[in-house]
Computed example of a mutant assay.
Amino acid sequence: MTEKNYLTQKFEADRSRLRGVAYRMLGSLPEAEDAVQEAWLRLSRADTSGVDNLSAWLTTVTSRVCLDMLRSKKSRREDALLEGGPEPSVSGEDAIERETILADSVGLALLVVLQSLNPAERIAFVLHDLFDMPFEQIAPIVDRTPDAARQLASRARRRVRGGDVLDTAQTAQKSVVDAFLLASRTGDMAGLMAVLDPSVTVRVDAFAGGGQSRELQGADTVANFYNGLAQTARTALVDGAIGAVVAPLGKLYVVLDIRIENGKVVEITAVGDPDRLASAEVSVV
């Protein structure tokens, strides 16, 4: 086996894992594919004779590429790939399906929070908390000392997890929101009616309502509105309160402020205003 064939074989064995690393950092499958492809290009040009652990080397290179992409806030696709190198195979419906699977595996709410972190925090958190990389290896990737890299991950962790364990009231509210979203996703009208207050009110701003604000009142009206609707909505802490986010493929589109009284949903405010989304503090529950 030639060296080129050996590197291609090793890279293909790691491609799926590298894609997962890059996706968690970038939140976009096309950008993740770009990062992985750039890692291949760097591998094909590098002298790896002194590399003991090629998988770790590839993880480091992919992470550095992602960090550069995050810092520049733009991605690029190689126009000319090295002849004979492995090519990405993401397009059309396959790309949408693959990104949906990746988003579900990561968690839509988690992707939303990850995208709110600064690049170095995101890299440190993903590599350490999600892929168990030691801080000694993370430090040179983010141009920090190991202690500083640890602090980056710690700050990110507090943002991701909201800092505190849910109290009794929040736990009860979460169960109601979970039940509401599940009934909405699955078209369970009986389930929706069970968690809606008879006088429930829904307010939707113009950004979330496709250019027109609207107000709905009454359990029957609201249940019919949400029947089958919340396919990409997930429970989350929004500004410290139990609510939900609508995040197709992890891209924040709407926040739902949900008020609960006596175990019933009494009010939902759906907000898609970009200023509100930009200022919202979202954490995973």
Rank of each mutant, 00 (worst) to 15 (best):
T2Q: 08
T2R: 05
E3F: 08
N5C: 05
Y6Q: 11
Q9V: 14
A22D: 02
Y23A: 05
E33N: 13
E38G: 12
A39T: 12
W40N: 14
L43Y: 11
L43N: 00
S44Y: 13
S44P: 08
R45V: 05
S49A: 14
G50V: 05
N53T: 01
L54V: 15
A56S: 14
W57L: 07
T59C: 10
T60S: 14
V61C: 10
V61G: 11
L67M: 07
D68E: 15
M69I: 11
L70K: 04
K74E: 02
R76W: 14
R77E: 06
D79K: 05
D79Y: 10
A80R: 13
E83V: 00
G84S: 08
G84V: 06
E87I: 06
S91N: 09
D94C: 06
A95T: 12
I101A: 14
I101V: 15
A103D: 11
D104W: 15
S105Y: 13
S105L: 08
L108D: 13
A109Q: 08
L110H: 04
Q115K: 14
Q115S: 10
Q115D: 07
R122D: 01
A124P: 00
F125N: 03
H128N: 10
L130I: 09
L130R: 14
F131V: 02
D132C: 00
P140I: 10
D143M: 11
R158C: 00
R158S: 08
R159P: 00
G163D: 10
D164V: 03
D167F: 02
D167T: 05
T168V: 13
Q170D: 11
A172V: 02
Q173K: 06
S175W: 10
S184V: 09
T186D: 13
D188S: 03
M189G: 13
A190C: 11
G191M: 12
L192S: 00
D197H: 08
D197M: 04
P198K: 13
V204W: 06
A208L: 12
E215Q: 05
L216R: 02
Q217A: 04
G218M: 07
T221Y: 04
A223N: 02
F225P: 04
Y226T: 01
G228S: 07
G228T: 08
L229T: 01
T232C: 11
T235V: 04
A236E: 06
L237C: 09
A241Q: 14
I242W: 03
G243T: 13
V245W: 07
V245S: 02
L249P: 03
K251S: 06
V254F: 15
L256D: 09
I260K: 02
G263F: 11
K264T: 03
V265Y: 02
E267W: 08
I268A: 01
D275T: 15
S279N: 15
A280Y: 14
E281S: 07
V282I: 15
